[in-house]
Design a protein around this nucleic acid. Structure first.
Lengths: 156, 156
DNA sequence: TTTAAAATGAGAATAATTCTCATTAACAAT
DNA sequence: ATTGTTAATGAGAATTATTCTCATTTTAAA
């Protein structure tokens, strides 16, 4: 595994600290693995990756910590329609992050950046409006488009 | 259960026909239940509702048919982060439909219409752009905002 | 009405996730 | 550094949503 940038490390690690959560080896492993790939992984994939590292953690620990990390906003969770949650490292609010194109046939997932078009601005505006209408404190969102990917549309 | 408008009935029923699927009692039950509520239900909720009707169908039939109905576009499926899929009746492409505000604390789901703001137009534009960039045939989408609802934010 | 194919239903099987609880590790205070 | 308190871990059992199997029933076309 390649090293993470110091900036990313400090943000995520410090956040854990802020919430009075201990910085344990399994937690570090999850954050490192997700930061390292930059993409989305299932709990099982994270577990398998973590198992390569000494003290990567048991499967229940992985789940317990993923729940914690999602709760405090260091990891984002989304579901792709196949009853299996995916997790990805959270970016800071000011950074661009990505949304998904999910192929119904092969279940592959394309990440696209919200910097394409004005998606980020639009969402920010949207959140402001919905918050005030529904008196709902929005913390994050997920935008997924479902359809058929290029490869699958060629194969008959 | 209240009656559905003839227009809704004919659209959904005729679509089934178009795909050479037989219009069976369990299928009718699912479409009727979802049309009737107008909101999202879990497979289990649909099963319980259907059980009240004679020939509502067994649970596996409910799942099998939900999968079919989602595949041919008569029902929309989404996941709210609690590992339990929700289903709602599909609207025609030209009709407005709704997206979701999902409370992380009480798991309640608020539906809001995409006619608020210019969401529908924005999404249409977005789909066009993403389709061409990624060579991906977009069929539908899901937009969910996660956060804390009014009630939960009051209760400490 | 008859018939062939499609659909159903009961329950077993699967797979992701959560729970339990005895053991271990983190870290604040000394 | 060492200790004590408390949070966190890990192994596996339990749970739960969903899918599968297959004998039986229903649909709808001829």
């Amino acid at each position: 595994m390649t090293d993470l940038s110091d900036r990313e490390i400090s943000w995520h690690y410090n956040s854990l600290n802020k919430y009075c959560c201990r910085l344990t080896k399994p937690r570090r492993a999850i954050l490192d693995i997700l930061s390292d790939t930059g993409r989305h992984l299932s709990a099982d994939q994270i577990y398998k990756e973590a198992s390569k590292i000494s003290s990567g953690g048991g499967l229940s620990t992985i789940y317990r910590n993923l729940e914690l990390l999602v709760r405090i906003g260091l990891v984002w969770k989304f579901e792709a329609g196949d009853n299996k949650a995916r997790y990805e490292i959270a970016k800071r609010p000011d950074e661009s992050h990505h949304h998904h194109l999910i192929c119904k046939k092969c279940n592959s997932i394309i990440d696209y950046s919200d910097s394409i078009g004005n998606e980020k601005d639009f969402i920010r505006e949207r959140e402001k409006k919905l918050s005030s209408i529904y008196n709902f404190k929005i913390e994050n969102h997920s935008i997924d488009f479902f359809g058929v990917c290029h490869t699958c549309s060629k194969n008959k």
